[in-house]
């Protein structure tokens, strides 16, 4: 955990969605959280979270004023973490229906793959984040259908990846920000602080 002057500044895309839940989770994980609504606001941050919400709505804003290109540039050197709608924005390919995405994560993602709200669920299962089981809140969740060779799978549901990492890109089909377990956000905060230091993984 970093503090004070060394504290990471992590942006949360605040176009729409549960960005305030992410901001709280980041603060609890020792990082400073900033709301990001415009492309010029990503300049001063060390990492970025794409929160849960409606990916179609977020895309409308990202497709305007060069926001998509700014995010692609940002991700070439700084870490990005997407949850639910966020993983849909990050994926190489989106199905059901097909839509534009950043292509930063080598994965094929299917939207609303588990059904409607009535099919939403909270599951507890093993993960690579330690022996303690991880709670996973799925809300109208997408499914990762395929992943590329560089994608490391950190947790699964029925055999399908639900938490993945590809270098400085992290993604979850569930909502760690809606649980009290902070291991997922702490991992991202660590990736951010390592990549913003000289000689780090960035």
């Amino acid at each position: 955990m970093t503090q004070g002057a060394n504290q990471s500044r992590i942006g949360v895309l605040a176009i729409q969605g549960d960005f305030s839940a992410h901001a709280l989770a980041l603060e609890e994980s020792g990082a400073k959280a900033l709301e990001i609504r415009k492309p010029e606001e990503i300049d001063g941050i060390d990492g970025l979270i794409l929160p849960g919400g409606e990916s179609t709505t977020m895309l409308k804003f990202l497709e305007r004023s060069g926001f998509l290109d700014a995010l692609k540039d940002f991700a070439t050197e700084r870490p990005v973490f997407g949850t639910c709608a966020g993983i849909i924005l990050l994926a190489r390919e989106v199905r059901h229906p097909a839509q534009v995405s950043l292509g930063l994560l080598d994965a094929v993602v299917e939207r609303n793959a588990y059904g409607r709200q009535i099919d939403s669920s909270i599951l507890v299962g093993p993960s690579e984040l330690g022996a303690e089981p991880l709670e996973m809140v799925f809300i109208r969740a997408p499914r990762i259908l395929e992943t590329g060779p560089e994608v490391e799978v950190l947790a699964r549901r029925d055999g399908f990846p639900v938490l993945v990492r590809q270098g400085r890109i992290m993604a979850a089909t569930f909502h760690p920000e809606l649980s009290t377990d902070r291991r997922v956000h702490r991992l991202f905060a660590d990736i951010v602080s390592n990549s913003s230091q000289p000689g780090g993984i960035g």
Partner: peptide
Amino acid sequence: LRLKIGLAEMLKGG
């Protein structure tokens, strides 16, 4: 209730 409120959270700002 967490799942119900969870969906409401996803609609915020919209």
